[in-house]
């Protein structure tokens, strides 16, 4: 008795979960946008422009449309069968597939073998041809060219309405929604608010930096007064680099500092001539840094 219970229970569980998977899968597909009078809009791979319908996989799982049916006749649910076993019938999560109603049936998966009228009905049936996945009726007798109808991505009521811009295989984005800059402009037509806000933040950011470096500066100033000056190395190259740090220059006046700055500037611009007197900044190695083993090899700690 107990074994039977678990058997039936497992079967029931399997059935429910299978149904759940099915519900999350093919039933999440819905018609999303339609254009019946296509003059200059979507061009198929054969260069033709026909009426088209966009289908949206609203789920977060991949679904396969292979074997499903599209029809414009309620009495004939299996009017056009989407070919099965082809990789391009797989629609990734939150993605789109576009069916073109060219009336030619031998042009591939997405070329439906009948044409759309300006007034009609469209339905999508599952692989059995019996379970209706989605359907809608439409009537656009005086539809201007290249205008599409659809459901906006952010429309909770899922209302079919005229789109601002046709968007085959793309999100139906409501462009009437204002951009951030437009919204900002509405509240600040003269730019005073943005000026005050941004200038305050710029000042705040740089003030924070200034405060922090004032304190760190004081800290390091104290540190340098505490620590004794290290002995100067005899190496010529070292001497050239440390020339600004030598004690006699720390109390130099403005003209000395300017002279050193100018010399360094000329040196780094490779304009400084070799001088026989005064201080000489040219490094001793003539090779480039790329070719120098001494500069390239990492020195191991002793």
């Amino acid at each position: 008795m107990r074994t039977y219970f678990w058997k039936y229970f497992s079967f029931l569980l399997l059935f429910v979960s299978a149904h759940k998977v099915y519900a999350d899968g093919i039933s999440s597909v819905r018609f999303n946008e339609i254009m019946v009078n296509n003059q200059n809009n979507y061009q198929d791979e054969f260069g033709d422009r026909s009426a088209w319908v966009e289908v949206f996989n609203s789920s977060y799982s991949t679904i396969n449309l292979g074997g499903c049916y599209i029809t414009n006749d309620p009495n004939s649910p299996t009017k056009y069968r989407i070919p099965k076993g082809l990789p391009n019938t797989i629609v990734p999560p939150r993605s789109y597939a576009l069916f073109v109603f060219s009336g030619v049936s031998d042009r591939g998966v997405f070329q439906v073998g009948f044409k759309l009228d300006s007034v009609g009905y469209l339905a999508l049936y599952d692989q059995s041809g019996k379970i209706l996945i989605d359907s809608f009726s439409y009537a656009y007798p005086d539809m201007p060219a290249d205008v599409s109808f659809g459901i906006y991505e952010n429309d909770k009521n899922r209302q079919w309405q005229q789109m601002n811009e046709a968007s085959p295989k793309m999100v139906n984005y409501n462009k009437i929604e204002k951009t951030r800059a437009e919204k900002f402009y509405e509240n600040d037509r003269h730019g005073f608010v943005i000026t005050l806000t941004i200038m305050s933040v710029v000042f705040l950011a740089l003030l924070c930096l200034a405060v922090i470096f004032t304190f760190t500066g004081r800290f390091f100033k104290k540190q340098t007064t505490k620590t004794p000056q290290p002995k100067q190395k005899s190496n010529k190259q070292q001497k050239t680099v440390d020339v600004v740090q030598q004690p006699q220059h720390t109390t130099a006046d403005d003209s000395d500092i300017a002279a050193i700055a100018l010399t360094l500037h000329l040196y780094f611009d490779n304009q400084h001539e070799v001088e026989q007197t005064g201080f000489y900044l040219k490094p001793q190695h003539s090779q480039s840094a790329w070719a120098s083993k001494v500069l390239n090899f990492r020195q191991l700690p002793k």
Binding site: M199, F203, L206, T214
Partner: peptide, 17 residues
């Protein structure tokens, strides 16, 4: 060495606005 100078860099941004 003279962090208060940072504020001058901020003030000159008024040109942007």
């Amino acid at each position: 060495s003279n962090p208060r100078m940072m504020l001058i860099g901020a003030a000159a941004q008024f040109g942007i606005f």
